[in-house]
Amino acid sequence: MKCPSCEHEPVKIIDTRAQESGEVVRQRRCPQCAAKFTTVERISAFGLKVAKAGDRPPEDFSRTKLRRGIEKAAAVWSLGEKDLDAILDRVVKRLRPKPNEIVSSKEIAEIVLRVLAGDRPALAITRTRFAMVSIGRTSRATRFHGVHDFIRWLEDEYGAPPVTRPVQTPSVVVKRNGHTREEFSLQKLERSIGIASKGRGSDGQVERDATAIAVQVAGELHGQAIVTSQQIAGEALKILKRRDQLAYLRYASAVKRYQSVDDFWREAFGLLES
């Protein structure tokens, strides 16, 4: 290896440390200019081939493609660069790649799932989402033919469910910030719709309409245990738009967070097209 400062060759290794991920970190010193620098060595998957479904020829293993798949599975639970590198290094290490060797994408997926095993929520969620894609493909024989198969997989991997089956759905509302959660309340939804509809009929009529709309929204979301506040608002807006466009505008201005009077113009013009 050449010195990056003066290009003298060779340089001296003064310290070597093996990492849990399989990387080897070495400190080096140039005997000519005395410059010190660090190198990181990792197992390469160069030459490894991945078997594809059907009659398609094998393709080169792509660390970048696998990284992208894990990042997508992580979704909002972003994994840091070091975490991703460590995960990929462990996957490659377990593959024990040899030039021109062919492995199946299923084998790679199984190794990823083993590497992602851990107690950290980010890893557990990433692992579960990755499994839903890798095991849940309809193009191959799979254990995930439906939700019952998925539940059995969860039990196999994580044991008995720590949560009880919801008495009703929707059950939990995820607020706009993505972190706050609260129980779904039909009464709360009725109040918000009633406020938007105030004066659009007698008090009794407004109350009855608000109740009817809230029940209809809950019906549209039935079967979804966890819903977002945006979903609830979306269903309410669809109904209000058909029933009372002024009440729709009142409700929309709050849930869509209009930024200026221009937004009222845009929304009103849109209603003219419907």
Rank of each mutant, 00 (worst) to 15 (best):
R129Q: 11
E235T: 05
E273Y: 14
H145D: 15
R42H: 08
F130P: 03
E101K: 03
D89N: 00
R152Q: 03
A117L: 03
A225V: 08
T138N: 13
N177E: 05
P4I: 06
D262I: 14
K2V: 05
L95F: 14
A73R: 08
G199P: 03
G136W: 04
S202Y: 09
S229I: 08
S274P: 15
K52D: 12
T64I: 06
P10D: 03
R26T: 00
N177D: 06
G219M: 07
I125L: 11
A210K: 02
R28C: 02
V215A: 10
W265Q: 15
R200A: 07
P10Y: 02
D203A: 12
I135W: 11
V133E: 01
G136R: 04
A122Y: 12
Q205T: 15
K106E: 02
I226G: 03
R42G: 01
R165S: 10
T164V: 06
V50F: 01
R26L: 00
N177P: 05
S5G: 14
A34R: 09
I102W: 02
Y158T: 08
L84P: 11
L79N: 09
G69E: 01
S229G: 01
L246V: 11
R28L: 01
Q19Y: 08
P162T: 05
L79H: 02
F46I: 13
L123M: 09
D83L: 02
F269V: 09
E107G: 12
F144Y: 05
I125T: 08
K72E: 11
I151C: 10
H179E: 11
R114F: 02
A124P: 07
E9W: 13
I13C: 00
T16R: 12
A117D: 09
E235L: 06
L249E: 09
R42W: 01
K93S: 15
S253R: 05
V115G: 02
C6E: 06
K188E: 02
M1K: 14
A131E: 09
D55K: 13
T39W: 06
H222A: 13
E267W: 02
L240T: 01
T64W: 07
E110R: 15
C6I: 04
Y248R: 11
V115P: 01
K238Q: 12
A254E: 09
K198A: 15
R243E: 07
R114E: 06
P161D: 12
G118R: 07
V167Q: 07
S274A: 15
T211C: 05
E7H: 06
Y158W: 06
L246F: 12
S253F: 04
S185C: 09
P58R: 02
E157C: 04
S197D: 09
A74N: 04
R67W: 00
P121H: 04
E190G: 08
A236W: 04
A225F: 05
R257A: 11
K238R: 14
V163M: 12
H222V: 13
K241M: 08
C3W: 07
I195C: 06
P166I: 07
D55V: 14
G136A: 09
L246Q: 12
R42V: 10
F144A: 12
G223E: 11
S192A: 08
D149K: 00
Q216H: 13
K241E: 00
L249S: 08
I135L: 12
D119A: 11
T138V: 14
S202Q: 05
Q231T: 10
G47K: 06
K198C: 05
